[in-house]
Write a protein that binds this DNA or RNA. Structure first.
Lengths: 217, 217
DNA sequence: ATTAATTTTTAGTCTTATCTAAATTTATGT
DNA sequence: ACATAAATTTAGATAAGACTAAAAATTAAT
């Protein structure tokens, strides 16, 4: 049985390493985990002992398939709980992360399978991120950043890259949610800002915003 | 913010000390927590430092009102989660304890208040135990052990004293659940066994059973 | 290709929560 | 009341996970 700390490290490597495909540097993990590189070295050695990561000194860590499976299951739990919080307990999408960080570590196969069924097998969390299935598989979507959309094109908001509370509240304020239709009225090359049409009204957004909003054409 | 271990100690003292009214011995806590007396001494010193228990050397520990409040809130969370698991995730009453032991430590005021509302403010958990309110108050019930019921009297099952999986499965097997009507047909003074009428059929039960089932006349 | 800068690891320390073994205090029995 | 038993506390160790500071390896720059 893995400790909370071990699960969090696996999750960090999972997120940084594109779901276990590439090696992640000690420093990158340290930054993600808000800890020190020396602590990371200790932990990845321990995870390597358990065959959850492949570790070569000075070369960073990469998830094994066992490690990937565990990391994906933690992410699965996190995202399912987020759906529960939003759909049934009236949480807003900027409030769920902190609580889901705790709930993702609850250990019970039955709990998570029943929760999945109770939620009617959702495929995406409230931020538009895909929920891994029982085997850790995630379904790929063809989402692109809003900044990639050309002038005069329309698209639909399907996810966020930055899921910080600040950004989510900004989107709420401007009535942008998952499923919201957006049309690019114009793009300003000088500062890469855009003018959108949202709910029949124009809205000017900066590059920071268009670079953190995923859309589907 | 309290650690998981600290919360568990407070909960143990709460259960053993009748909700904070009486002092609990080091050994009793050690047995309840499945740990050693020396570990208990260390911890209750620490809790005393934080003014959550009153500790006098060689005299055991007693919850302060602050400690009682925290312990009650942990118990509240435990029991609310149990209700959720049974009512919405198809858990049976003998399966909920282990998972609720984990869920009770999730920290979020909003989570527990919303969960309470979602469950429509239940007053008792699936084993008939009362759920403390936000202020830690529990409503007293006039339940009594089945062994106290006289011959020819009828009563209703309202709770269990032993909530082990084994006992709960025994009750399931004999179709005894909360709300089930029971009539004492006869009592055997030799071994203190009883013959009940349950669902229009006779059922012989031992003293162990009648001493672990709460009923209301 | 060597030096300089950066990254990573090692060594040693700290905290929390646990343990064992020994010492101390309280309770018990005659 | 006094010896002994039982309960409790103290002292010293251990393991997990974190940290700092110093050493080592890698990468980058000239």
């Amino acid at each position: 049985m893995l400790s909370l700390a071990e699960e969090n490290y696996l999750k960090a490597i999972y997120h940084l390493g594109k779901f276990g495909t590439i090696s992640v540097s000690t420093n990158a993990i340290a930054e993600q985990m808000q800890t020190k590189a020396s602590s990371v070295t200790d932990m990845i050695k321990k995870l390597a002992e358990k065959d959850l990561v492949i570790y070569k000194r000075y070369q960073g860590a990469k998830l094994t398939s066992a490690g990937n499976k565990i990391a994906a299951s933690v992410v699965r739990k996190h995202r399912l709980w987020e759906v529960f919080l939003v759909e049934h307990l009236s949480f807003s999408w900027d409030e769920v992360h902190e609580v889901a960080e705790q709930l993702e570590h609850i250990k019970s196969e039955k709990l998570i399978n029943q929760l999945d069924a109770f939620l009617e097998f959702p495929t995406h969390d409230p931020h538009g991120d895909p929920i891994p299935d029982k085997n850790g598989q995630i379904q790929k979507t063809d989402k692109v950043l809003l900044s990639q959309i050309d002038e005069a094109e329309s698209c639909m908001c399907v996810g966020v890259k930055d899921s910080s509370s600040e950004f989510l509240k900004y989107l709420d304020k401007h009535k942008i949610a998952l499923g919201t239709e957006l049309k690019v009225l114009s793009k300003e090359s000088f500062d890469e800002s855009m003018i959108l049409e949202v709910h029949q009204k124009p809205l000017s957004i900066s590059k920071v915003v268009s670079n953190n909003l995923f859309v589907k054409k």
